[in-house]
């Protein structure tokens, strides 16, 4: 029995990864979208069903409604980023984080428009905002707005402002709590639309929910992680400035995962330190007792991966992600990787090899140079165990290179994709620009959109 087939006897446990599972994911997706909309829209419905004061003009009340909506959307951000595995499963957590970015921008616009309309209608209100006369609840509103503005600027332009990711995460959380807390103080203080006791209860409940979520994410979850440590077994140098960390659970059974999923990794810190980073699992899902991450030296954190030494303690929060062939059963698969985007695809290939899979597989793997091609030797070895064809696409090929070079173009895809391309599932992982370009090229080749799966691993 080969190395890859050795572990195929291990029972593989994942939920919803058969044909019926696909349907379940769609239903579950709609269910969680419904829950999110209820959370965000409830305060507006309450306003609609039980209006408070008599009308003060359309634009006045419109601006008040936007203020309420923006605040409830801010509250819902805590739910979005709490990483509830069941809620994230139908979408993939990368999509939820991108949704968080965009919906935060929408909420910010609503909240900015709220005082803008009021000041436009009643410029005299500016007088009430002078520091000598400002009321405490108005001050809370102003500080909330300033905090929120800082939050948005530092999030949208973090890299341009050269803010370290770890520091940004801590300040992002603190600013978010401050902005929401002060917005609720502002609403309660103004009191016009929350006069009845049950409306006050509603806002108190929203505040309590946010507080509970905060306790769960920042206290309970890290405590659980602390009790489930991992040990770094090996740090292996790979081609292309990449390193593979081999981790084993210590005193617990670890977790099972679908091939292609990822986890948040904490190194050199306690889980309370908020210094965790998402990485794809590059090892086989059939060997959950030995989890591997292959990490390329790209940023502040990843450049220090080589300094990790065997015996160090690590913590893993996972598995997450919807990028897995187990979610979309097919007769054959096509994988397209760019750079270190090979990591989750390697996890899938290793899993398929461990399962003794005989389906037809095509890997198109784009990289800068032949020498730097991560997993070069192992891919050649995998060909002996799988019905796998590998097409390397090099940016800077060596002089005697006979293979493909340049970008993954329509012509290149036409040369290598199987004839019955509609019968395959396509998995793309790489830089955002490459993924978008290849996705469009696949569409032009006639691949249905629902058969193209991608993951954006630039969550930071």
């Amino acid at each position: 029995m080969s190395d890859y087939q050795r572990t195929s006897a291990i029972r593989f446990r994942t939920k919803g990864c058969n044909g019926v599972g696909n349907m379940n994911y769609v239903q579950r997706g709609f269910f969680w979208v419904g829950i999110y909309l209820c959370l965000v829209l409830t305060p507006l419905f309450v306003l609609l069903l039980a209006p408070g004061l008599s009308g003060s003009g359309f634009w006045w009340d419109f601006s008040i409604a936007l203020g309420f909506a923006g605040t409830s959307m801010m509250g819902a951000m805590f739910v979005l980023t709490a990483r509830f595995r069941h809620a994230a499963a139908p979408f993939g957590i990368d999509l939820i984080y991108y949704f968080h970015r965009w919906i935060a921008l929408v909420a910010f616009i609503f909240i900015i428009v709220h005082p803008a309309i009021l000041l436009f209608l009643e410029p005299v209100f500016l007088e009430d905002l002078r520091i000598s006369v400002i009321s405490w609840h108005m001050l809370a509103g102003v500080i909330s707005l300033i905090t929120l503005t800082i939050l948005m600027v530092t999030s949208l332009w973090r890299q341009q402002l050269k803010i370290h990711y770890d520091a940004w995460r801590i300040w992002h959380t603190l600013f978010a709590i401050t902005a929401l807390g002060l917005a609720i103080v502002h609403i309660e203080g103004v009191g016009n639309y929350v006069s009845s006791p049950w409306k006050r209860i509603l806002w108190a409940a929203i505040s309590a929910c946010c507080l509970i979520l905060l306790l769960y994410v920042r206290l309970i979850k890290p405590l659980v992680l602390l009790r489930h440590p991992y040990r770094v077994e090996q740090v292996v140098k790979e081609r292309g400035d990449a390193w593979t960390l081999v981790l084993r659970p210590q005193g617990h059974s670890g977790f099972t995962f679908m091939p292609g999923q990822f986890a948040w990794l904490t190194l050199r810190n306690s889980p309370f330190a908020l210094k965790e980073h998402p990485f794809s699992i590059s090892s086989s899902a059939m060997q959950p007792q030995e989890i591997q991450f292959t990490i390329k030296e790209l940023g502040d954190f990843t450049r220090r991966i080589k300094d990790v030494f065997p015996g160090q303690t690590a913590y893993l929060d996972g598995p997450y992600g919807a990028f897995s062939m187990d979610r979309h059963p097919s007769s054959d698969y096509v994988f397209i990787a760019g750079g270190i985007g090979i990591a989750p695809i390697m996890g899938m290939l290793r899993t398929l090899a461990d399962r003794g899979d005989s389906r037809s597989l095509l890997l198109i793997y784009a990289y800068k140079t032949w020498e730097g091609l991560t997993f070069q030797e192992e891919l050649e070895k995998l060909k002996e165990h799988l019905h796998l064809r590998v097409v390397y696409v090099l940016d800077t090929p060596p002089d005697n290179w006979q293979g493909e070079s340049g970008f993954i173009t329509d012509e290149l895809l036409a040369r290598h994709l199987p004839v019955a391309m509609n019968q395959h599932e396509y998995y793309l992982c790489g830089p955002v620009v490459m993924t978008a370009m290849v996705e469009k090229a696949l569409r032009r080749q006639g691949v249905p959109l629902h058969q193209i799966h991608s993951e954006i691993f630039n969550l930071a």
């Binding site: 507006l44 209006p51 009308g55 006045w60 009340d61 419109f62 959307m73 965009w102 929408v106 996705e439």
Partner: peptide, 30 residues
């Protein structure tokens, strides 16, 4: 596609909320 989907979902939610806010303002002054 995933980036686009995230944008569309956020935009749709935003428009829905905007409509509800307008409805509230309308009925408050009806």
């Amino acid at each position: 596609m995933r980036l686009f989907l995230a944008k569309i979902l956020a935009l749709t939610t935003g428009i829905l909320i905007l409509l509800l806010a307008a409805m509230f303002a309308f009925f408050q002054n009806y």
